[in-house]
Design a protein around this nucleic acid. Structure first.
Lengths: 124, 124
DNA sequence: GGCTGACATTGACAGCTGTCAATAGGAGAG
DNA sequence: CTCTCCTATTGACAGCTGTCAATGTCAGCC
């Protein structure tokens, strides 16, 4: 079972560019023209999910390894198990992380294309 | 370094001190290898400054116009003058915005290269 | 000098956020 | 079924954040 934030589409490593979070936002670039209120709210939601040192390190760990289960995060992040679970949930709801339950473990990997979408919204 | 860094351009800024992500931080990419604690804190600080709808719209306005004074922000942002002043201060302390006092007005523009640095840290 | 206009600062308040202890849920092993 | 392990949820708490009214500060104009 794949646990995603919004739609539960089982995208098994499809290269499609999916928008983060709600899907509508993140389409406009920050530097081209003034953002609408809705665009700003949508982009701010993803950035807020990224704006935490623990979550940034979590993302970097997942990114470097490719796939990680929660028990492998608790140690490197130096946070309790509920706190790690909380951070993974925040990242999933922001569309940044994707979790898949296999047996008793939950394996986490990055949502493909999400960070690239954020970079593009920031003027890339 | 993600802050202004006093490049060769005459980006003089008067008033206020900024000490955001100085030092080593913001130099590593999120996706290449696990971030250190200091790198994560520094990057999170800049991202937290970006993670607000009002500030994102403020940045987009400044970016599209090139240079604006505070009185031109109060209306489009639909916020009171102290609130606008608060947001500009947060962005300056994060090294994203640069303010220059000319006469009675303060003119704001984007710190050159800062957003590009953030994009790069996000894996660009 | 006093006045006016443009920002900055302070104080207060509600709402959000990161953290952990305690607890619950659920899958595999025996 | 029971027991154990991994993960998710709940409850509580401290700290941070966005907002505005009130006030302060400083430069230019009379």
């Amino acid at each position: 079972m794949v646990v995603t934030g919004s739609t539960s589409t089982d995208d098994r490593r499809t290269g499609g560019d999916r928008a983060a979070g709600d899907g509508d936002g993140c389409a406009a670039s920050l530097v081209s023209a003034p953002l609408s209120e809705a665009e700003a709210v949508a982009l701010a939601r993803v950035l807020a999910a990224l704006a935490d040192p623990v979550r940034l390190r979590l993302i970097s760990i997942v990114s470097s390894v490719g796939e990680v289960c929660s028990c492998d995060l608790e140690g490197p992040l130096a946070r309790s198990q509920p706190t790690v679970s909380h951070h993974t949930k925040v990242l999933v709801e922001a569309g940044i992380l994707v979790g898949e339950k296999r047996g008793r473990w939950t394996w986490w990997r990055l949502a493909p294309g999400c960070l690239a979408e954020v970079r593009r919204a920031l003027g890339g």
